[in-house]
């Protein structure tokens, strides 16, 4: 039984008169503790798929189950609660809250989403600051640190609530290659430390190489799943 199970998932967007068929029957299973990448050309449906897994959107057809919950049936507030409890998000543009310090940004989900008491909060924030190596910068505002540092903070923020799953849509697109590599390494290390499942989308072939499982999307269809541990083995989607 996987952490994530997509069964013949379709997604259609209606733009005026035309209907865009962004996902055309995607089925996949992702297990706990996996380090997964979703690749594919622009417009192939990577963001759409991640939004569905992340419970930010609903399938037009088919079933998406995350941690045993059919995410298609959640209301606005239930969805917020589900995401706050089970899923961490990392964004391409970092999306840190500009008026909060590094420390406060990491603390935010504990404070505003989960209502964790103060002593436990500071313990967990400090631990994650240490893990991502941002202790020195903890009192700086996002505009005072570099892109790579911002993404480290974002990783810490995504992990601070100990979610089962972290979703990252093109987390390295705005970073230079070395920094991108470091961020992916950090994510992998976090997976090793906390056992969290990571799913990230990317264009960068070198980054893709870091993933243990790679799902390839083309025109809304899963065209390949490569398992790095069984190198070379290619499987039709």
């Amino acid at each position: 039984m996987g952490l994530i199970k997509a069964e013949n998932v379709h997604k259609r967007y209606r733009v005026g008169e035309t209907v865009i068929h962004a996902l055309k029957g995607v089925s996949l299973t992702i297990g706990g503790g996996a380090f997964v990448s979703i690749v594919g050309p622009s417009g192939s449906g990577k963001t759409t798929l991640l939004n569905l897994i992340g419970c930010l959107d609903r399938p037009s057809e088919g079933r998406m189950t995350v941690a045993g919950t059919d995410v298609g049936g959640l209301g606005r507030r239930q969805g917020a609660d589900f995401r706050g409890k089970n899923i961490g998000f990392i964004f391409q543009d970092f999306n840190l809250i500009p008026v909060l310090t590094v420390y406060e940004n990491i603390e935010y989900p504990l404070l505003m989403v989960q209502d964790v008491p103060a002593p436990e909060r500071s313990e967990r924030v400090s631990a994650l600051l240490r893990e991502v190596g941002m202790e020195e910068q903890s009192n700086k505002r996002p505009d005072q640190i570099s892109g790579g540092q911002k993404q480290r903070v974002a990783v810490a923020r995504a992990l601070v609530t100990s979610p089962a799953l972290v979703l990252a849509d093109e987390p390295t697109a705005n970073l230079d290659h070395d920094t991108a590599y470091q961020v992916i390494e950090l994510m992998k290390r976090m997976r090793d430390t906390f056992g969290t499942t990571f799913i990230f989308s990317t264009h960068d072939p070198k980054i893709v190489g870091e993933a243990e499982v790679v799902h390839t999307l083309e025109d809304g269809r899963l065209t390949g799943t490569r398992n790095a541990k069984e190198a070379g083995h290619e499987q039709a989607g």
């Binding site: 609660d81 995401r83 409890k85 899923i87 999306n95 500009p98």
Partner: peptide, 16 residues
């Protein structure tokens, strides 16, 4: 708007 999207995505309740 993007900030609101961020905090909503990471699970902040609408009431909050």
């Amino acid at each position: 708007i993007r900030e609101i999207g961020t905090i909503a995505a990471i699970g902040t309740r609408p009431g909050r």
